[in-house]
């Protein structure tokens, strides 16, 4: 009973904390910096979610932009349809907006998760680079389907019915609340029994199977969860951007996600967080370099892969204890 109370208290404190920091950020920072902070949060969601399948499970997806697109389109469309109904029910205001937004995000997550399931069931029988190339194919097909769907604006993109675009629901509070939720969910999966099984699949799938691990089911589940988190990130992106186009979810977007988890370290949650933030900040700082920017970006990817293919942290997690003991703890 008390444990339950403590949990409620901690959760309330965290939510209040995010709200407080959000208010502080919005009061003190210029919008330009705020935007980068939001992008960093969305990147963290993408990276942590992708890390579950690419890092922990070792099944490489290079088409996650497709799931992000499904989440973004679903959330945007649901939000536009729900908003009038909910504001009629609960009155226009912050409450009905918050409910609309989160229902839209959840709808995006569910659709992306289902798509992940549908893509995952046939594809995850394949291994390694074959799997990678199939996810790439699916990612491109998803984008091409949006490109040819007139009801969602086809190549022009989807902006809702208002000429000023989708409502800008995405705020510091919502982005980072979702960051906390998703990081906790992924952390709990990674360090659970299931998580160990996933790691076992990464290390040696045949051995894992021999140990009676239901490899296919676990892989598909992890893939679907990872797709759902990309869907949440897509919904947040859509409502930050006030409109989405199929072009926003090109193959390059999937590469960006991979770069994030590679910088931090494949199989490390804290690594993914660092990678997500790093990418948001660096790409923005390098804007002045114009055409050199993408050259440096690609060079960075190649050099990291050659010099330190396991990323900054490898599969280790960054923790306070690591600094206190001056020694990396072994993986739990």
């Amino acid at each position: 009973m008390t444990r339950w109370l403590v949990r409620v208290a901690v959760s309330t404190a965290v939510v209040a904390g995010i709200y407080g920091i959000g208010a502080g950020v919005e009061a003190t920072m210029i919008e330009y910096v705020q935007r980068i902070v939001l992008i960093a949060g969305i990147n963290v969601i993408l990276a942590v979610g992708l890390g579950l399948i690419n890092g922990t499970t070792g099944q490489f997806s290079i088409g996650h932009a497709g799931f992000m697109a499904i989440g973004a389109y679903t959330a945007a469309f649901t939000g536009v349809q729900l908003a009038p109904a909910l504001s009629g029910l609960a009155g226009a205001g912050a409450l009905s907006e918050a409910v609309t937004f989160n229902l839209a995000l959840l709808a995006g997550a569910v659709m992306a998760g289902v798509a992940g399931l549908l893509v995952g069931i046939p594809s995850l029988r394949l291994k390694g680079d074959y799997l990678a190339i199939v996810t790439l194919g699916f990612g491109e097909i998803i984008r091409l389907l949006f490109n040819n769907t007139q009801a969602l604006g086809a190549a022009t993109g989807y902006f809702g019915n208002d000429p000023s675009g989708l409502p800008p629901y995405t705020s510091f509070f919502w982005v980072y609340l979702w960051v906390v939720v998703i990081v906790l969910v992924i952390r709990n999966i990674t360090f659970s029994q299931t998580g160990r099984s996933l790691t076992a699949i990464r290390e040696d799938e045949i051995a894992a199977e021999a140990m009676a691990t239901p490899t296919t089911r676990l892989k598909v589940t992890a893939f679907s969860i990872s797709a759902a988190t990309a869907g949440i990130a897509g919904g947040l992106f859509a409502h930050m951007q006030s409109g989405i186009r199929p072009e926003d979810f090109k193959f390059e977007k999937s590469i960006d996600m991979i770069v994030m988890i590679i910088i931090g370290g494949l199989g490390s949650i804290t690594g993914a967080i660092i990678g997500g933030i790093f990418l948001a900040v660096t790409l923005e700082l390098m804007r002045d370099l114009q055409e050199w920017r993408l050259i440096l970006y690609a060079l960075l990817l190649v050099v990291i892969m050659i010099v330190r293919p396991q990323g900054l942290l490898g599969t280790r997690e960054l923790s306070l204890a690591m600094f206190a003991r001056k020694k990396a703890p072994s993986k739990p």
């Binding site: 290079i62 990678a132 055409e291 690609a298 060079l299 892969m305 050659i306 293919p309």
Partner: peptide
């Protein structure tokens, strides 16, 4: 340099090389 690395490491490197050459091409 990656001859003995896990099979996915050279794959990512190859994607990186492709991006690099394409952007150099644009320049």
């Amino acid at each position: 340099p990656l001859r003995n690395a896990p099979r996915l490491t050279p794959l990512i490197t190859a994607i990186g090389m492709s991006l690099l050459l394409q952007n150099l091409g644009m320049l």
